[in-house]
Design a protein around this nucleic acid. Structure first.
Lengths: 248, 248
DNA sequence: CGCAGTCTTGAGACAGATCAACTCACGTGG
DNA sequence: CCACGTGAGTTGATCTGTCTCAAGACTGCG
């Protein structure tokens, strides 16, 4: 849980890294693509984080973070920054993000927001306004960012519904179905995958305690809906049945 | 609670209505503004809703709704659509929106999403893709939509934090502070305003029951933090103190 | 005036939090 | 190679905040 001070470049962006990750879909034609890619590379900052490290956004930052490779958690800490003993779990995970995602990181009303590395992580960090200024005359790029942002909004709204009126069992079931979909593209039937985050992160994501998450996983296991393979390995026996558990 | 079937125009958009509401800030120069405004008017649909009516999005809809005048609630219903007696409160309010807001309304993973009129309401409804195609060569417009979307994402994330690990008292306090800010621009000191929504909507927005909301309001009143003026009237005696109640 | 809907207040039940052991997996070093 | 230590995960017992059910008070309207 190392603190990573302000946003800062550690090296120049690998041009092809940037262009591939960001614009594969947005820019079908090759020529303007390289031009805009070059310009964006000039303002983007590359960051590599080791597993467990965090990129902490300053209060005034308004960032767009592209995840080149790896898995990350976006989290909000309920202030109380100077707690020595890791303090209470006053931390809420807003979303999990994986390779290829674009994460808007803007100041929350209160409490700092930061991006934690669930695995080794490669990021490209932009100042949002600078990015948009540069991409101003390339509507396809802005539109791609907008599409990703709307997607993030949709997932955030789903999370609101989940946390607003769902029981612990439904939240855990919903979480597992979502992970099955995002990690191995499995939407039905048997499905096996490895969770990149621990119970603690799951709990903070669902607004539950680790004890409750653990209990619900055990219950689902006893009900024959899943098996575990070691600590992080999960086998869903019937993704559809689990989706039904998650409720509407 | 009338059902409003599919999105449908009731009359052509008043051009100045559209241009004023959407582009006042996005398009400083006048000439191109009218051109793009005309084109957008051609694809936007005007809708007027009476208080209590709802605009129900179809599963396949992907809309951008501009609120010309009035107050609205964006809500997700936990399926179970054929419940006769108003059924359980299986409904979650995702956000409140007021005059000038731009509301992305896309299909949620499950359960329909719809926009309810808290007051008489005037809307302009666009298909998102059609809107973006039309605004393609006007980056300022797309950028304005992106900015609004990022703002919606930010508020949605704040709601996740609120519902993830905050007690009822904190949620109600936070709600009141937010409303004070959005309805009368009050951020501190004494502040009086009228809530456009009932206790029931507040409860559904915060993931609580109306009884709990009512109790918390009573408690805050007994603690001298606020007074009520009739049913919907609220007087905050000290917005800062209330913000402190809401926690970090 | 009386009705109907909204809001408030009260008493009891329950899901999940909290506190506290205990187990397990894994790496380290004797 | 095995004892040990550490951190994560599981399981159990109790406590508490919020939901539920139920009754009463307020507001607005015909």
């Amino acid at each position: 849980m190392t603190y990573i001070p302000p946003i800062m470049a550690t090296r120049t962006i690998h041009p092809e890294l940037s262009s591939m990750a960001l614009f594969r879909d947005a820019l079908p034609k090759a020529d303007p693509a390289s031009a805009i890619a070059d310009r964006l590379c000039a303002i983007g900052r590359f960051r590599a984080l080791n597993k467990g490290e965090e990129l902490v956004a300053q209060q005034e930052d308004n960032l767009l973070v592209f995840i080149a490779t790896g898995a990350a958690k976006l989290l909000a800490r309920s202030c109380r920054p100077a707690s020595n003993t890791e303090s209470g779990n006053s931390e809420q995970i807003l979303a999990f993000h994986f390779t290829g995602d674009i994460v808007p990181v803007a100041k929350q009303g209160d409490g700092r927001i930061c991006l934690g590395a669930l695995s080794d992580l490669e990021l490209i960090v932009f100042d949002t306004n600078q990015f948009l200024d540069t991409a101003q005359d390339e509507p396809a790029v802005i539109r791609a960012v907008l599409a990703k942002s709307l997607h993030a909004l949709q997932r955030s709204r789903t999370k609101v519904v989940q946390m607003g009126h769902k029981a612990a069992r439904q939240r855990v079931a919903g979480f597992l179905v979502s992970m099955a979909d995002r990690l191995c593209g499995c939407a039905e039937g048997v499905c096996e995958f490895t969770l990149p985050m621990g119970r603690c992160d799951i709990a903070h994501s669902l607004g539950l305690t680790i004890e409750t998450v653990s209990r619900q996983l055990s219950d689902l296991k006893h009900d024959g809906l899943l098996s575990t393979r070691g600590r992080p390995g999960i086998v869903l026996h019937d993704a559809d049945a689990l989706r039904r558990e998650a409720g509407p």
